[in-house]
Design a protein around this nucleic acid. Structure first.
Lengths: 166, 166
DNA sequence: AAATTTGAGTTATAATATAACAAATCCTCT
DNA sequence: AGAGGATTTGTTATATTATAACTCAAATTT
């Protein structure tokens, strides 16, 4: 029996996630000679406030508070930039955005989304993508991008539910 | 070298797809004592006009032409019913709907979407879902529903593109 | 037939996303 | 440093997708 991986729980402090993401982003932009402007950095920060995917419109008030004129295009443009750099993913099934912790170039991920606590976890899904690639080869289909999003209940929320039924 | 499966091409006539889908739908509704009302049947028919996923708003003009008062709720309600019966799928990455040719109860599918001709193909993806299930078990994640949508180019459109470059 | 449930019509609005153009900022080259 | 060009952001308006809430009609049950 595999022990619970706690993958949905931030190991001790979440600040670490934020710092790491920001550092990686800065590094990446330096390397690629791209500009991680104030709006872009703030949007990335906001996205990383939690592991819950956020809607574009959830970010607007915070942008306003920070003194940016926060009309939708501002946030969508920042999100677009961050997606192109693989720093952020859009979850099609939620119309929401979340940070990516292995940025690089734009890529597809595999996401587990908890319908109770709304946290989401991105996994490296090589076996999955291999299987998918095999299906595609059978069809002679040439893959551009994959959307793999699994809705369900994370281990922590399963426990809570089990306890509340006790 | 595997031969081209032509999975994206309707074998001879598409009318067959429509007829089959309608027959199956009627059968299913009879069995489950559900009402395949005129609006629902028309929406299903419209969805099956092609293998291209259609947006809800694409259906409205046709509904109007058929004499229904076609405000959005009408079409969304019909689509909701059809989805619940597994007769239609919603593609989250496109905000569009397509017919399902192995209806039964509500279920998740795996979709290959051609970005050139906009046709989509649903496959039975048991190996894929097994892989996904294995990932989920490792995480102790309990799956509710899966969204698996692969964007790319179908074999037919690959050929066309190759020829036009010649 | 009355009561109940289900489906559809209708109006309004919510939620998500983009178009188009103007202004500001930044970069490069002299 | 300053002119010219590119990139980013501000701003206004609007497109697209989806749902809420209430009414009326039809069907089913009692």
């Amino acid at each position: 029996m595999p022990e619970s991986h706690q993958a949905f729980v931030c190991s001790s402090d979440h600040q670490h996630c934020i710092d790491e993401a920001l550092t990686a982003a800065k590094q990446l932009c330096r390397d690629k000679q791209l500009r991680l402007t104030p709006v872009r950095e703030l949007v990335l920060r906001l996205i990383w406030q939690s592991h819950k995917p956020l809607g574009a419109y959830d970010l607007l008030p915070a942008l306003a508070k920070a003194g940016f004129n926060s009309a939708p295009p501002t946030v969508y443009r920042a999100l677009e930039f961050l997606q192109e750099q693989g720093l952020v993913h859009r979850l099609a099934s939620l119309n929401a955005y979340m940070g990516c912790n292995h940025p690089g170039t734009s890529h597809s991920g595999c996401f587990f989304i908890c319908e109770e606590c709304h946290q989401a976890l991105e996994i490296e899904a090589s076996p999955l993508q291999t299987t998918l690639q095999r299906h595609a080869e059978e069809l002679n289909f040439s893959i551009t991008r994959e959307t793999i999003e699994v809705l369900g209940v994370c281990p922590e929320c399963q426990q809570q539910k089990a306890q509340s039924h006790a």
